[in-house]
Nucleic acid binder design. Sequence first.
DNA 1: CTGAAAGCGCTAACAC
DNA 2: GTGTTAGCGCTTTCAG
Lengths: 330, 330
Amino acid sequence: MKKVTIYEVAKEANVSLATVSRVINGSSIVKEETRKRVEDAINKLGYRPNAIAQGLALSRTTTVGLIIPSTSVSFSGRIINGLCDVAKIYDYSVFIHTITEGVMNVKEIIDEVIKSRVDGVIIYADKDLDDSVRLLEDYNIPMVVMGNKVSSDTICSVYVDYYRAVYELCNSYLDKGIEDIAILQDHRNDVVSQQFRNGAIAAFKEHGLEYNGYIEVSNDNRSTYKFLKSYFKTHRHQVFIANRDSQAMAALNAASGQGIIVPDDMELICMNESKYTSSVRPEISSFVVPQYDLGAISMRLMTKMLKEENVEEKEKCLDVLYSPKQTTKD
Amino acid sequence: MKKVTIYEVAKEANVSLATVSRVINGSSIVKEETRKRVEDAINKLGYRPNAIAQGLALSRTTTVGLIIPSTSVSFSGRIINGLCDVAKIYDYSVFIHTITEGVMNVKEIIDEVIKSRVDGVIIYADKDLDDSVRLLEDYNIPMVVMGNKVSSDTICSVYVDYYRAVYELCNSYLDKGIEDIAILQDHRNDVVSQQFRNGAIAAFKEHGLEYNGYIEVSNDNRSTYKFLKSYFKTHRHQVFIANRDSQAMAALNAASGQGIIVPDDMELICMNESKYTSSVRPEISSFVVPQYDLGAISMRLMTKMLKEENVEEKEKCLDVLYSPKQTTKD
DNA sequence: CTGAAAGCGCTAACAC
DNA sequence: GTGTTAGCGCTTTCAG
């Protein structure tokens, strides 16, 4: 099937290309009979409007760019699901750009994004924003940042309120007189780590205490288990908080290897529930993070910015939901 | 920063836009001095070529469409990582379209894809190809199918050889006289299920036996565990093969709930290793499926098709690697 | 080596 | 209601 243009449709339907354009876009009123004739021609020829040409003519591509770390793709794929579902509803297409260390740098991606003339950019950035991202501001490209709390004229953001989750969690333990609370963290998500830390600090401070239960590990999964295995030989805690599911599982295994009974000797909480946290025994008490919503709401926000609808809330906060299972006492 | 066009760069550099174009594309020879002048102008003005206009002029967008089920995004995100990494290397951008049941149908997506004038389409289809996909053939759009073995003039494919994996696995057990091998399957991946089944059938047949150890469950995770919990009350097997990690974990939990010791009473094998299969105790013996490669190789294949390089192998088969852990005896 | 001009397919005034 | 026409920003002959 050769590619058919608006011009051939016009000829087939015996109208001008302007009329065909009107039919395609429903932009202006066309006589019912003419419309029918055009639609028949379109179907007969299998015509599909050329989005590239439309983009050129309109200086608008109904396209958004998604920039997301590779690790987040494999770890939080549901973000993409939510984002794409909403994009589809509002008729946007999405360019996906993954950030893989070593393969490309952010600057190159931003260049690509600018060249592609997307209408807006959604970026997952739970670390501080790369400087080159600021380039998008210079170009006045609307932006939604996921996982970070920032905003400006052209920037909105959607983030998860880990601060409050940790704060409330710690508070509830402190109220019960339980003060030995350890938080395990790596350096993959600086912003999130910071929220954890601040939440704990705030809760402890409110109880007249200073928080110093922060444990840091390197980024590799295997080593988390190894690290904890030896860590638990010399350390005990009443409560142990892990960020990712795999870390919580590592903690569970490492603890039981050292004869620590969960939850009797130590309670364990994972900040990111997954289907795996309830696939182990005991099932791990976790916080449910709305990944899908994170993507969906970000995209929705983007459509609002692009339609210049009034965005009343430029920094949207998502709550997490606590789901106690078998690794906590109540 | 206002958007700057090739024309303004030309004026700034005191050349015609044709020359600027030549510099951008390195297409034709330009005098060193002129080139320098143009490059300075480009940098000074912060000029980024408009990919949309280029696309129109060239009838080529250096863009590919990726069509992938939502479930695969969250379950096999690494496919996307591999695909995007390779795309970046060859300077392609990728449009991602997820298939979420209820939100959109494949036909709409195909329409979108055709409108967007991508140079090629990569589709993850471990079920049989939807009819509307054939439309892409009509339009002569090169296609790479992941997870399925098909090819035609415009179609290549990359798939994982589960058949052989199951075949060899069954064979090795049968050789040892172990004949009670159960395979757990749902209906999410018809093609894969078929490969499993055929692999087992072939191995059994070779030993003069008929295979009938196929167990079917519904698609829901929770119910797999529930199902197996009651299943193991009345059934025992020497070997139990599960497809996904979560199913293997469910089997592990359900079996131990019924007093079945793994691997002593029953050996357990998962066909898709994940970081979780080794995060439970006992660690689950699994096959390592090269997800990243699946995406990477598919994209590489696409670049070859688009360059009209000779594609010697239109149906590329990827091997899985057996990684025995603690749920098998040796 | 460089410039002029046609054209990629479509939209949006502006006429009729 | 419908047609005409001037761009949108770039590539690519074809001249010079």
